[in-house]
Simulated assay, not measured.
Amino acid sequence: MNCITVENLSFSYPGHVEVFNGLSLSIVNGEKAGIRAPNGSGKSTLFLLLAGLLKPASGSISLWGKAMQTPDEFRKTRLKIGLLFQDPDDQLFLPTVEEDIAFALLNRGISREDARQKVDALCDTFQIAHLKKRVPFHLSWGQKRLVSLAGTLVTEPDLLMLDEPTAGIDDTVIETILNYLEGFRGTMLVSSHDRNFLDRICTSRYLLTNNRLEKC
């Protein structure tokens, strides 16, 4: 079964030229797909469309074989999706690191104790336990990236979409992220200019250019 099926997708931002016109793609369950593309070609927009945070002008999106036709259908399906934004400042918004990481769990009704255990485990994995009481906005860029990734992974998503996860971070942080993602068992879409990163974790490669996503 495909995890993602997109057919003839078109999208434009108000007052701007179109981003996509007739885009189609399919990603099978368990695929680890790396996406390369020039800046401004629509990688971030594609992820937002797949998560239902933007609405296409035309075309269809199906996730796990179910057509996503209404905001409510997307809302329910997002419980299985983890989306890492390109800029961690777009993702972090609570007073402390531990609250930010736990937010999605608590929002889904998980008990505070269960949420705390999951947060603690990820903080240990990413070596950020010493940051739990810190204000996210006061962290370094690499620390923010690890915190935002922990907040994305804490719900154990079936589909993980990572938008430029290595941008602006050093090799030590990249290696920490790689060590975790190499064991991820769900479906993964990663947009990145870092070919070495994609080579480590991806089983397929795509090039997004001229409104087309082609396997390469």
Score class of each variant (00 low, 15 high):
48 L>Y: 08
149 L>T: 12
168 G>C: 07
137 F>H: 15
193 H>I: 01
106 L>A: 05
166 T>D: 09
215 K>H: 11
91 Q>N: 10
46 L>T: 08
21 N>Q: 14
177 I>H: 12
125 T>H: 07
199 D>M: 03
168 G>L: 06
104 A>H: 06
187 T>Y: 03
199 D>H: 13
4 I>F: 02
96 T>L: 10
114 D>F: 01
98 E>Y: 12
114 D>K: 12
42 G>K: 08
27 I>G: 02
174 I>Q: 15
72 D>T: 02
120 D>V: 04
104 A>T: 10
149 L>V: 11
10 S>P: 12
11 F>A: 06
26 S>Q: 10
194 D>G: 02
188 M>V: 14
194 D>T: 09
170 D>H: 14
182 E>A: 03
60 S>E: 03
176 T>L: 10
139 L>R: 11
108 R>V: 09
26 S>I: 04
103 F>A: 04
151 G>M: 04
84 L>D: 08
127 Q>A: 00
101 I>L: 10
7 E>Y: 06
140 S>I: 04
105 L>P: 15
4 I>W: 00
146 L>M: 09
148 S>W: 13
172 T>W: 09
160 L>Q: 07
75 R>C: 02
33 A>L: 15
95 P>W: 01
130 H>T: 11
58 S>F: 09
178 L>V: 07
194 D>F: 05
33 A>W: 11
125 T>K: 15
164 E>R: 13
194 D>N: 11
162 L>C: 14
147 V>A: 09
132 K>N: 05
74 F>S: 00
141 W>N: 13
210 N>G: 00
1 M>Q: 05
83 L>C: 12
52 G>W: 00
72 D>S: 09
158 D>V: 09
101 I>Y: 06
81 I>S: 07
160 L>Y: 08
172 T>N: 14
77 T>K: 10
181 L>Y: 02
75 R>S: 05
64 W>P: 01
148 S>R: 15
68 M>F: 03
211 N>C: 04
187 T>G: 06
147 V>W: 11
52 G>P: 00
41 S>R: 05
209 T>S: 13
131 L>E: 10
106 L>E: 12
28 V>A: 15
191 S>T: 13
55 K>C: 03
149 L>R: 14
67 A>N: 13
78 R>V: 02
7 E>P: 00
127 Q>N: 03
2 N>M: 07
147 V>R: 14
25 L>M: 08
213 L>H: 02
127 Q>R: 14
113 E>D: 08
182 E>L: 11
48 L>N: 11
168 G>N: 12
22 G>Y: 04
139 L>P: 12
64 W>Q: 01
127 Q>D: 07
79 L>H: 14
106 L>C: 07
20 F>D: 04
168 G>Q: 12
60 S>N: 04
71 P>D: 06
54 L>Q: 03
89 D>Q: 13
126 F>P: 06
188 M>E: 00
110 I>N: 07
212 R>P: 00
2 N>Q: 10
163 D>N: 14
